[in-house]
């Protein structure tokens, strides 16, 4: 993370990869404890990853990263479970339908981000899809959309901030 925070993209990728299994384990534990379906854990993981990303300037590289991450996880888990409070308390028949339906989807695929992507403006939405789902690089995306690489980077950065903000505003609407 130290290298990542100074702009090393590959190191940042390795860091996020390494931390995700821990986040997933924490999210599953919490979901179990609060009676939320396991399938929601992956949504929480993605929300936490976004929070780590948008708030990485608040980590002091002279301090251990553990407490920083676990505080973010705790904060986001509480938000996420509060937001899902309604879904959690639906009648049992619905839950069974829901769980059965769930088995057909990839357990590591989350739906929240997908839903919020739809609310992003163009070209932000296009850029996010191009890089994440289709696996293009920033340069390829820039060429295809006839934008400069810098402009794509800025648009991507704004899109990620907007996604993080959407999680927050959903919490407010439901809370």
């Amino acid at each position: 993370m130290r290298a990542a925070i100074s702009g090393d993209s590959a190191a940042y990728h390795r860091f996020l990869k390494a931390v995700t299994p821990h986040l997933r384990a924490m999210a599953c534990r919490r979901c179990d404890r609060f009676g939320a379906p396991r399938s929601e854990a992956e949504d929480v993981v993605q929300e936490v990853l976004l929070a780590i990303h948008t708030k990485r300037g608040t980590w002091d590289p002279n301090r251990p990263i553990g407490p920083w991450i676990s505080t973010i996880v705790r904060n986001k888990l509480i938000d996420a479970l509060r937001r899902r409070g309604r879904h959690v308390s639906v009648p049992i028949e619905n839950v069974i339908d829901f769980l059965e339906a769930e088995e057909q989807t990839d357990p590591l695929e989350a739906r929240d981000v997908e839903r919020m992507l739809g609310r992003l403006k163009e070209p932000q939405c296009d850029i996010v899809r191009s890089i994440s789902v289709d696996g293009h690089s920033i340069r390829e995306t820039a060429n295809r959309l006839r934008m400069t690489e810098g402009a794509v980077r800025v648009a991507l950065h704004r899109a990620l901030k907007a996604l993080a903000a959407m999680y927050r505003s959903e919490l407010r609407e439901n809370g």
Binding site: G57, E109, L156, L160
Partner: peptide, 24 residues
């Protein structure tokens, strides 16, 4: 969206962030 895809996405936006201490 898969979590791995999201990680790819985040890693692309690796510009050096503003430090909160400096901002304050």
């Amino acid at each position: 969206m898969k979590t791995d895809d999201l990680i790819d996405l985040l890693a692309q936006d690796s510009a050096v962030p503003w430090k909160i201490g400096r901002i304050l």
